[in-house]
């Protein structure tokens, strides 16, 4: 039976990604460990993404608060603004928006970098020189994205909450102490931990899709651009799919 082209292409792509993931886990626990490269990638992926994440997080908290305020005033529950904003940021908006920004910056960067290395046969050269390119290029980057995104999300949440605090104080007055007391009084482990765990999966998806697209890039420089674009699109889509699955799981576990 011959399947339609797009279905065939989709299934083929899914199978290739699965093989790529399997290969990643296969390489992950076998020496030699590329520690220095991993740390460098953590720096490049984590530290250099922080300013962008911080700015977007700050604006997100501020805007969300200013947008929610009129509705809450209409219901006479303006004092609940810190509680609502903190829950929204920590549970959903913080992780998802941070992951999307991160995907836009990192996944495309990895896709383009590995794609250009592929089309310029640098990866083949590494193999010839005795370096395991998968371990050196893919494992380090995927590990870095997996570990850095949760940290970036935590920092982004805090900056968003500070932005929200400023948003609350634009038309009202709440002390920083009272604001953060209300926030931490509202938050529970069931709010923080599922959100933190899902960012690990977001990070892994962003890294693995970026690496896969770059590592399997072809057709010259045109293919590099296409790989970078596809990496962003697919990793963004994966973020929402993982988010949906996480919400279902936390709901089943009674954590919502």
């Amino acid at each position: 039976m011959k399947l339609p082209f797009y279905i065939n292409n989709f299934l083929s792509e899914t199978g290739s990604i699965s093989r790529f993931i399997t290969r990643f886990f296969g390489q992950l626990f076998h020496p030699r460990y590329e520690i220095r490269q991993f740390i460098r990638q953590c720096y490049l992926i984590g530290c250099l993404s922080f300013p962008l994440i911080a700015i977007t997080g700050f604006i997100m908290g501020l805007v969300l608060t200013m947008q929610l305020r009129p509705s809450l005033i209409a219901y006479g529950v303006e004092s609940q603004l810190p509680i609502m904003v903190s829950l929204a940021i920590v549970r959903e908006i913080g992780p998802v928006i941070t992951a999307l920004i991160f995907a836009g910056k990192i996944s495309s960067g990895i896709g383009a970098e590995l794609g250009s290395m592929k089309v310029t046969e640098q990866i083949d050269a590494m193999e010839v020189s005795g370096t395991n390119p998968f371990k050196y290029l893919v494992v380090t980057r995927v590990l870095a994205t997996t570990l850095m995104l949760p940290l970036l999300t935590v920092l982004s949440d805090v900056i968003s909450l500070y932005g929200s605090y400023l948003g609350v104080n634009i038309k009202g007055h709440t002390s920083l102490q009272l604001y953060f007391f209300q926030v931490f009084h509202t938050l529970q482990f069931s709010d923080v931990l599922p959100a933190l765990i899902k960012t690990v999966f977001f990070g892994f998806a962003i890294g693995i899709i970026g690496c896969y697209k770059g590592y399997n890039s072809s057709k010259g420089t045109e293919g590099v651009g296409r790989s970078a674009n596809a990496a962003v699109v697919i990793s963004s889509l994966f973020i929402f799919i993982i988010d949906l699955v996480t919400v279902q799981i936390t709901d089943i576990l009674g954590l919502n």
């Binding site: 720096y43 949760p150 938050l187």
Partner: peptide, 24 residues
Amino acid sequence: ENVTLGFFVAAGVVVLIVSLYLIG
């Protein structure tokens, strides 16, 4: 780079631990 990364990781971990402690 290492120092910057160390600071970044430490900041993230400290914020996470403090948040979890306050919630706990």
